[in-house]
Design a protein around this nucleic acid. Structure first.
Lengths: 345, 345
DNA sequence: GACTCGACTTGGATCGATCCACGACCGTTC
DNA sequence: GAACGGTCGTGGATCGATCCAAGTCGAGTC
């Protein structure tokens, strides 16, 4: 408990550092923000004072003056029974890591489920965040249009499907390429009747992935008629769809729009005493925890979320630079993680 | 582009509202923070001006003056191959939801893996967050001790196992009770030789959960010798442990410290043509996504993370109140989600 | 010796909300 | 008619970092 300026309880301020180093406030500020303006020995002296006091600029004061918070807002869906979205969680982790390296922190928020705009407005008007990352673009993203009218900086994880002339930066993963990869993988292993289980027709992402499967089949001159099914993204409906397809189309392999649907296929197979990988090949999408641990391992398309985070932060840095640099959309290629469910060896 | 005070680009300030409402800044401030100090009609008038301008207090300015950020910091482990922790993700979701209702936002950060203190110090010294929630207390928590010396407010999700005299608030789930629940469930279904697969001996959580299994067995006068195994938390080691136990101890059921280990048991069973639920009963811990979708459904202990979040925020509110209210630890009871793996019906 | 230039100092203003003290006006109350 | 309490207004100060303009000082430079 010394009586020095930086007494216990109150963190040291810029003025405290200045006094200790025997320089002016301005010089300390420059030492922190424009080190190249100082002579080497002065910088050294100030730095020592900073270290000695354990000084770090007060966030609120800096934010107020510079009109920037160095926070990136990201909305996550409210926790709900069975709505866990492991992919988004993985993305959040990567985003937190990447933003840190760029000097940003991630602020999570949520809002009423039925109002996709809830939460954004408050954070924006109170200047709590510098920018947003929007992600839940399953069925289009009204947030993007709204944020654009508000001139709020944001980057979208997911293409602006419903608005091809959108000008905002986005990063996405090429789902069609992923499913093409998956389908070709099965084709290469000798399969010819490969079924598709995907999502409802109004899901842009679902139709995109489906297109990849169809393209791969067409390229080999194989028919797809009767081999596709579109259902809700649940294990139960995946199971039903697989059961129907097995009876009516007799496929030797399944490519699915999600690991959840693929798990449905595994259920259907086990009910009939069929073994995934030996009797029927199955490929999922997302490389979830489930794909990794279910026997015999579910072959699955993996999104490069770490790279998505990197590109997202890069785009954000562009938006927040002076002057802002507009960046175009970025489309990344997924990879295929091969496991037992697509065949031996 | 009007020339009114709140022009496009710059959000309206308190002064703008005051001018529009024909009152003083002070009165607007009171309207926002101490509405009961105003006469009903004045409040109404100010409120209208606030709505008209879309005013929201500037976060940075308020933070600077009140020395509070209304942010709660939580560190998450850096994204790593296969380290996904779905339980923590579920907790984060619940925490975000609950904090919102209490007027707080959650700031996520990460730091070097090998330094459990990285990140905390910066946020603390720059007064970026009001408090922390610490969660990764698998092998004790050095953060807690460190934060206590810094007099930083924080709540731990996880008991201070290695420091019984710790004075900080914590919230935890009674793992022993959970495993006792799981074991009794199997005992009630007629099993008598129930094996345990858990974690290394220096894991406090692992030993706690194991104690629940042992207690249930002992209460029924059943022996536990030769029925327990302690391994790393991976599917592979769960499989190995199960294989050995099946050969040497001939159990009719397994209770595991995690769903991951339980998945290992399922692997071992399928290798021998044994069906979970019919031939051997299996119970996991965490009620993960995997437990929900793997056939025939994995019976699992579910942590009430929503309630953990509620208690955590309650404790935080106590810590941050004026004057602070110290709260004791809170221990919550988990529940058992029964699925096919523990038997028919 | 006049001039330039880099490396600072000085003293203030500013960001926007909150805190504070004092004073004014109002209708009640004794 | 004076005292009183509730409702505001007024004019500042304050939080801590940054921005800005003007000025000082010593070491060169021509």
């Amino acid at each position: 408990m010394s009586s020095s300026p930086g007494r216990a309880g109150t963190p040291p301020t810029l003025a405290d550092v200045a006094e200790l180093a025997g320089v002016s406030r301005q010089t300390v500020s420059n030492a922190v923000n424009n080190p190249d303006l100082l002579r080497a020995d002065t910088l050294e002296r100030v730095q020592q004072a900073i270290d000695e006091l354990g000084y770090l600029p007060n966030r609120a004061a800096r934010n107020l003056r510079t009109r920037a918070s160095h926070l990136i807002g990201m909305r996550i869906k409210p926790a709900q029974e069975g709505t866990a979205n492991a992919t988004m969680d993985r993305f959040v982790h990567s985003l937190v890591d990447t933003s840190r390296e760029a000097g940003y922190h991630v602020l999570l928020f949520s809002g009423e489920l039925d109002d996709p705009l809830a939460g954004y407005d408050d954070l924006l008007r109170s200047t709590a965040v510098d920018a947003f990352v929007i992600s839940d673009t399953f069925l289009g993203n009204p947030q993007a249009a709204w944020l654009e009218t508000k001139r709020a900086p944001f980057v979208a994880f997911g293409r602006p499907w419903d608005n091809p002339v959108a000008r905002h930066p986005w990063v996405d993963v090429d789902g069609a390429a992923g499913c093409e990869l998956a389908t070709n993988h099965l084709l290469d292993r000798g399969h010819e009747r490969i079924a598709w289980i995907g999502w409802r027709k109004d899901s842009f992402i679902g139709e995109d992935r489906r297109a990849g499967w169809a393209r791969a089949m067409r390229t080999r001159g194989l028919s797809t008629t009767g081999l596709a099914s579109r259902v809700e993204d649940t294990v139960a409906s995946g199971r039903e769809a697989a059961t129907v397809l097995l009876d009516e189309a007799r496929p030797s392999g399944f490519v699915c729009a999600s690991d959840t649907l693929a798990m449905g296929v595994l259920h259907a197979l086990s009910e009939r005493g069929l073994l995934p990988g030996r009797d029927i090949a199955v490929v999922g999408f997302d490389d979830s925890q489930v794909a990794q641990v279910v026997p015999p391992g579910l072959t699955s398309v993996r999104q490069p979320l770490e790279d998505v985070a990197i590109e997202t932060v890069k785009a954000l840095e562009g938006l927040l630079a002076h002057p802002p640099t507009a960046s175009a959309g970025v489309l990344l290629k997924p990879s295929l993680v091969v496991r037992g469910s697509s065949g031996p060896e």
